[in-house]
Design a protein around this nucleic acid. Structure first.
Lengths: 210, 210, 210, 210
DNA sequence: AATGAATGAGAATTCATTCAT
DNA sequence: GATGAATGAATTCTCATTCAT
């Protein structure tokens, strides 16, 4: 309890500062000052500045993944699970805004090219996510509630990019659509793009010329 | 010619390095060395390291916007213009990979929160882009070639996020779908999400229960 | 017993680590961890990190000096005492390798220039050693078993340097001669350099031309 | 010329400070201050603090080795070359006191255990020295001017240790014999230990009992 | 006696930028 | 325009030591 109070304070402050100013522009001295601890204390709880980021990443992504796991386990059909996923995405986002922003901002630096031991772990977590989404899409394809025009895997990857990009622009203030509205639009967008035609009517799409 | 050879060399090298290692992890000394100029020379051509990034950003985004302007001017209907836009996006991307990656990586640092004079300029350019997309969507809505379920502006913003996110994940190697395939999928996805129902048939969507 | 078990563990671990990595490169945290005690416990048994070194130094040098005292007390002639001293040196070395290495490595830092209270104590112990060696040489000179060409004091100082340097190079792996062989060589070397000419023959050395 | 003035100043100051207080106890800030340059300037001329030590080591040892090479080339007999070597040792020492002390103090840290690329280079230089001394002893053994009771290599290693140890104790003020006197004593010591018996007289040594 | 979380004064190093040549 | 030596502020990290429990 008391033992981890400072640790949590550090993580909370760091999330906020990283989100606001970026990892590289946030000196450890500022984290310490705002968290009300000595600078050395950071290094009592974390290996390095990078270790602080790593903890934020892990705790946030683990929670996100657990949430998805949970909704998958509910056994709804693919289409409903997909909608649940989008809902979960935006709910979780709200509850962990600073953490999300931090991760959004820093992914290329810390997940991108450089192949380090811990970046491999991070990549793995993220690909776990793609795996979960693939699972949902496959279920929908099997139970007829979703119509995939591409492989489930490819579609899942695209969806991840879509969620990422819209979320990011929204959180960075690059676009103005309010978050709930964005969630609604994306839900709708996916529904239309992935919905099979109502029964009893032929899909006419193939006949189009383009 | 001779006057700008070193300038171009600097920009080319900087784009590559920023893309590979990130802005913050690329010392000016390395840019100078790889470009084959003295470190001081950087400061004859640019105000600062930030100025180098700024030039990459401006030249790249200006070219992109000009391309969109161009395709809008061709006077095709909204739907076709939208497809042209996606095509243009991926074409331009291919031709300016390093520059795009640089911008992708650094936007939050340099465009995000902090309101400086030059970040305002950059934001403006980006919002010009949203304006162009809005224009295309409005045209499609007016000429019946596109069906918007939300305002053209909101839809445009969402589309920008979608393009950004998928492009980024692809370029950072976070997802595996090859670029041309991704372009195809997105084209298809948008077509389904924004296509009006074939004439003579009522849109049944509204009747669904969900 | 139980009272000093942790103290001994600390000294043993510290000797080993100081010998392996050097005093400055051995954090107290590592000593504590390897000794299986808490970091604060170090400070119950010793005043400071320096105090740990001091204890190693004192205990080791005291034992060494006691051994010399002992062999001097046996009342052999000077020559034999000198050979006993060399033997004792290498025997003691073997039994206290880590401690010796620690002292070898750190002497200049902690015994050298800086005149502190405790460094004076240490210097005094070392000069006690020179005193003992001087005593042996004087005895040999008096009883005719050794031939000194310089004052006993000067010769003793030189011998100390000789023992120190060869021992050190050997322990640091700078030279390859095995320890027993080195002991033999030094014994022999001293014997030839300090041996009086066989009785009944004039020392011809003075007549040489060089 | 002017280009290297600051570099030399840094090396001179660093030698002095390392010799006085030890490498680990000399902050780079102090080197910079005393050398009259900015701290960053150190890193313009050297890779790291370690690089400064490395330069001192290399320049000093290279000069020493060149001197030995030189005296070997004079073609004197082994015995005289050995005496020249001792003379050269003490001459060079006088001319590079601070550098020698620095190297004396820091060898274990920087040459000892840890096998790094540059420590291998340093070890190699030092073993070159042993090689040179071996060469001299072999020559003396061949031309009859020296009597070796052990292999030339082993004797050379022992001699190196002897020179090292006595020099070191002298320079650290652990012993009081003045430098010239020490040189004389060592010369004499070696002469007696390695001198063949005058012609026409049998070596009686083997007959002794001990 | 024992613990270990917390401290904070330093340490080495980096790097964008300047300026005399 | 071009150079590159020099700068010094800023940054991350280390670690001996303390002290409340």
């Amino acid at each position: 309890m008391g033992k981890t109070r400072k640790r949590s304070a550090i993580l909370a402050v760091a999330s906020r500062l990283f989100a606001e100013k970026g990892y590289a522009n946030t000196p450890t001295s500022e984290i310490a000052r705002e968290a009300g601890v000595a600078e050395g204390t950071l290094y009592h709880h974390f290996d390095s500045k990078d270790g602080i980021f790593l903890s934020i990443f892990n705790e946030t992504v683990d929670g996100y993944i657990a949430g998805v796991e949970n909704l998958i386990g509910r056994g709804k059909n693919g289409r409903e699970s997909l909608l649940d996923l989008i809902r979960h995405h935006f709910d979780y986002l709200r509850a962990h805004e600073a953490q999300f922003l931090t991760i959004l901002r820093e992914s290329p630096e810390r997940i991108g090219r450089r192949k380090t031991a811990s970046s491999a772990v991070r990549r793995k977590k993220l690909s776990r996510l793609t795996g979960q989404m693939t699972e949902i899409l496959e279920r929908g394809s099997a139970d007829g509630s979703l119509l995939l025009r591409y492989s489930a895997r490819d579609t899942a990857e695209m969806l991840r990019g879509i969620l990422y990009g819209t979320t990011r622009h929204r959180m960075l203030g690059i676009i103005d659509v309010p978050l709930p509205r964005l969630a609604e639009m994306l839900t709708d967008f996916c529904r239309h793009a992935l919905t099979p035609p109502p029964k009893g009517r032929a899909e006419r799409h193939g006949g189009e010329k383009h």
